[in-house]
């Protein structure tokens, strides 16, 4: 068993690049989907029926499709419509689009739950439009939605493991290839689990900092 972990240690370069790819994929997907999601949120809350309906339909559809199936459709399905991706672009696009729906829903929930009075006070003090949003609405939104967005980042990290199936060289894929080359399944996958755990503990640490900030400002 110790010998097995020795083999994994020898292959640490492969695991580390897998870990780096997982982290990179997840952070890019989280940032982009947060931006796209924040553009989608006003659409969901739009007074125009058609706009709100279309946005809601997209969000609900994404929430009802398993991520792996969605990634398959993007990678294997779209080429038959003439849209071709390499596995990196397909994986990243799938992660970003899928999570855009979740981020939009998170922001909508946080927005709807925001107390009205501070916003009205902002208006009363002469804030309006973009400035009202940036100075009054956004800080509150970041604090209240922040922890939930952090949890979604953990979800993205775990979803990114599914991309091993389209041969994207992320962490699980790295562990998988070590195990198939040297037949050290326990050592390889337990190490991967430990690395995922570490990654998520880092995110949870960040979430806790944000939560404390929010509690102090309630």
């Amino acid at each position: 068993m110790i010998h097995d972990f020795g083999i994994v240690w020898d292959q640490r370069g492969l695991l580390m690049s897998g870990l780096a790819n997982t982290a990179l994929l997840s952070v890019i997907a989280a940032v982009v989907s947060l931006l796209l999601g924040s553009a989608l949120t006003p659409a969901m809350m739009s007074r125009r029926r058609a706009v709100a309906g279309a946005a809601r339909a997209f969000v609900d559809a994404m929430r009802c499709i398993p991520f792996l199936l969605f990634a398959y459709i993007v990678y294997y399905g779209l080429p038959s419509l003439g849209i071709n991706f390499d596995n990196w672009s397909a994986g990243l696009a799938a992660l970003m689009l899928y999570n855009t729906a979740y981020m939009a829903e998170i922001l909508r929930g946080a927005w709807a739950a925001m107390p009205r009075e501070p916003i009205e006070a902002g208006t009363a003090f002469g804030f309006s439009g973009v400035r009202l949003f940036r100075r009054i609405v956004l800080p509150g939104l970041v604090l209240s939605a922040g922890p939930v967005v952090g949890n979604q980042l953990i979800q993205i990290i775990k979803d990114s493991a599914f991309l091993t199936i389209i041969a994207l060289p992320e962490l699980t894929h790295a562990a998988s290839s070590i195990q198939s080359r040297y037949y050290v399944p326990f050592a390889a996958f337990i190490t991967a689990v430990a690395l995922y755990w570490g990654l998520c503990l880092v995110v949870e640490g960040g979430v806790n900092v944000l939560r404390r900030l929010a509690d102090a400002r309630r």
Binding site: I157, D159, T164, P185, V193, Y196, W197, C200
Partner: peptide
């Protein structure tokens, strides 16, 4: 909670 299902399954 931190382990992807696919990783757990392969393990």
């Amino acid at each position: 909670r931190a382990t992807p299902l696919v990783t757990l399954l392969l393990l």
